Simulated assay, not measured.
Amino acid sequence: MGHVTQDAWDAHYGAGRSFRPLGDAEHTLLRAHVPAPPGGRALDVGCGLGELARHLAAAGYTVDAIDLAVTALDIAERTPPVSGTVRYLRCDIERDSLDDLHTSYDLITLRLSYAFIGDRTRVMHRLRERLRPGGAIVVVTPLAAAVPADRRRTALDEHEITLLSADWHTVERHDTDGLACLVLRDPASGPVAYRGKGRPSPHALTGAGVVVTDAAGHVLLGRSLKGTWELPGGKNDADESFAEAAVRELAEETGLRAEASAARLLALLMDSVHGMPRVTAAVRVVDFRGTPEVREPHLIHRWEWHALADLPTLTADLFTPSAHVLDVVWPGLLPELPPVHRYPLASEPRP
């Protein structure tokens, strides 16, 4: 769904709206699968009005409850838990520092909040780094197939659930009164694998892979419907330079706007696919405008800003030409790349 602003959330809670109350089936599931250990600590992400946080405190956890909406936290703090301790913190899980959180938790919950996170892969990596050995992350979400069309952006489809589950060795899925409840344990990590996306249509296989980074240094990757993460980019049109192809493809795929003068051609890379030569221009776009969004849903399922340190351990495959382009900008970041012929054209200042 992407990021929702604090003002929008404050207006939501300020108007007296909330979300589906915590049900008996969820109480039973939490007791059975994630009982509080002695001295247990829990983090509730997107706590809203604090109902789940208070339940976890009464169950024996010491709870940190975070939310983007100040209005929701103000309301939550007026209702203390029956027993135990809840500490409420204003935190944008995608954009803010997590330094105010504890370094480790036995339980991390995301109830009806995961679908509202834009860069889910990166956020989940940061959360699982705070998970104690033997701990669990619990994601409770509506299913897209079970909600009206106008509410599907608040739910997860099976593709997103499969992608989320791929990062864990142990995944338990339960139904709680029509909600999907995922209990995730034992994080999985790379090394990242590389693969193509099947035989391309006949074409002179030349194109550009585009590297753009946000202010925090995260790199933009799209989740292809063919099952890979990949950079923005694509084939050249007739009489089109690599720089022109790069900014055009960037706009067509993500909505980000840049001038060709802001596109730096760093190298040409040549490998082969199904016996045909494939030439990829590594292009670095150093200035752009806009916010990434899916413009070609028949090709790309979603766009996310990824932390560089996460790329070597992605559990989902990375499109091979994109991996080669990333290696031009950040040499040595990715392990054991497939063979490629590289023709450097310019130097990229190290970020």
Rank of each mutant, 00 (worst) to 15 (best):
R350Q: 14
C91L: 15
E244I: 02
L101I: 09
A238G: 01
S189W: 04
W168N: 12
E336I: 03
R173A: 12
V138H: 05
T103E: 15
T62R: 13
L110S: 05
P81V: 05
L22E: 05
H298D: 15
V286D: 15
G135Y: 07
W305I: 06
A238L: 13
L337K: 01
A11G: 03
G275M: 03
A260E: 15
E158D: 15
V34A: 11
R120Q: 15
A72K: 03
L179H: 11
L156M: 14
S322F: 04
V171M: 05
L299I: 10
A238R: 10
I117V: 13
G198C: 03
T206Y: 01
T291A: 13
R87N: 13
P80T: 07
A262V: 00
R128D: 12
L163F: 02
P321I: 02
Y88V: 05
T141L: 09
R122A: 14
H27F: 08
V325C: 04
V219M: 12
A76G: 08
L269H: 05
V294N: 04
E304T: 00
A316Y: 01
R284N: 02
L30P: 08
L220W: 02
P133W: 03
G227M: 04
V212A: 00
R342Y: 06
D24S: 14
Y114K: 07
E252M: 02
R302S: 15
I117E: 09
W303Y: 13
L89W: 06
G234Y: 10
L221S: 13
D177W: 04
L43E: 13
G255Y: 07
A246Y: 00
A346V: 00
V70S: 06
A238Y: 08
P321N: 08
A8N: 09
H159F: 11
A76R: 04
G50Q: 06
E230N: 07
A251G: 11
R31N: 12
P38W: 00
V183C: 08
T154L: 12
T109S: 11
S272F: 01
P331R: 05
G118R: 10
V82Q: 09
M1S: 12
V139I: 15
E348L: 01
G198V: 09
D175S: 03
D67P: 11
H274M: 11
D44C: 08
L184H: 07
I66E: 14
G222C: 09
Y105C: 10
H174N: 11
R248H: 14
S241M: 09
H324I: 06
G50M: 08
L182K: 01
Y114C: 03
A243R: 13
A69G: 08
D99M: 00
Y114P: 00
H169V: 11
D310F: 01
C181A: 15
A208I: 01
M1Q: 12
A8H: 05
V70G: 14
T228E: 12
G50E: 10
S272H: 13
R130Q: 06
S18N: 10
S347M: 00
V329N: 07
L110P: 08
V86T: 13
Y13K: 01
P321D: 10
E158V: 06
A136V: 04
S241H: 05
P133A: 03
T291K: 08
M276R: 14
I300T: 15
